[in-house]
């Protein structure tokens, strides 16, 4: 079942990439997708945990919210990069990560890194070491809005 899904996803991806719809080329596409699925099965990399994560209905809303945060942080950090006399005040701290699954923690750490101004340095099961460019950035992470949102996405079945 999962393999059929993988095959369909790969084939749609192939169609979008190639833009050719003649019989011969389509045949090549079908064969190469089948080969890729066979190799994925042999290597046992068809993932069980990640897929269900991407099917959560709230995830797109979280991504939109994250996009807004990224834009805000971008302009702040860009200003600090360019304007003369602007101060940076880097600090390192441990932020709690209350997500239950490892995919949740990874999503949280990646979201922290994706937002300019904060970078996750090390991750453990329930803690992330974060490097922040400013105290305001540190406060945003420690306020735990982002973490709580990921927990809410994770909470759906």
């Amino acid at each position: 079942m999962r393999l059929v899904g993988l095959y369909l996803a790969l084939f749609v991806f192939w169609l979008l990439m190639s833009g050719h719809y003649e019989a011969l080329i389509l045949g090549f596409g079908i064969v190469s997708c089948a080969a890729a699925v066979y190799i994925a099965r042999r290597k046992d990399i068809v993932d069980h945990e990640t897929l269900s994560w991407y099917l959560k209905p709230k995830l797109p809303f979280y991504w939109l919210w994250l996009l807004g945060q990224i834009l805000k942080a971008n302009f702040d950090v860009a200003k600090r990069c360019v304007l003369p006399g602007s101060r940076i005040d880097p600090c390192v701290f441990l932020a709690p990560a209350d997500q239950e699954t490892s995919v949740g923690v990874v999503t949280y750490a990646n979201s922290i890194t994706l937002t300019p101004g904060t970078v996750s340095m090390q991750t453990w099961d329930h803690e992330i070491r974060v490097h922040a460019l400013t105290r305001d950035g540190a406060r945003d992470i420690l306020g735990d809005e982002m973490g709580a949102r990921i927990c809410r996405v994770e909470g759906e079945q």
Binding site: L71, N74, V77, A78, C81, L114, T115, P116, T118, V119
Partner: peptide
Amino acid sequence: HAAGVIDTG
């Protein structure tokens, strides 16, 4: 962080 600005924004 500066690299992050290029990578995302």
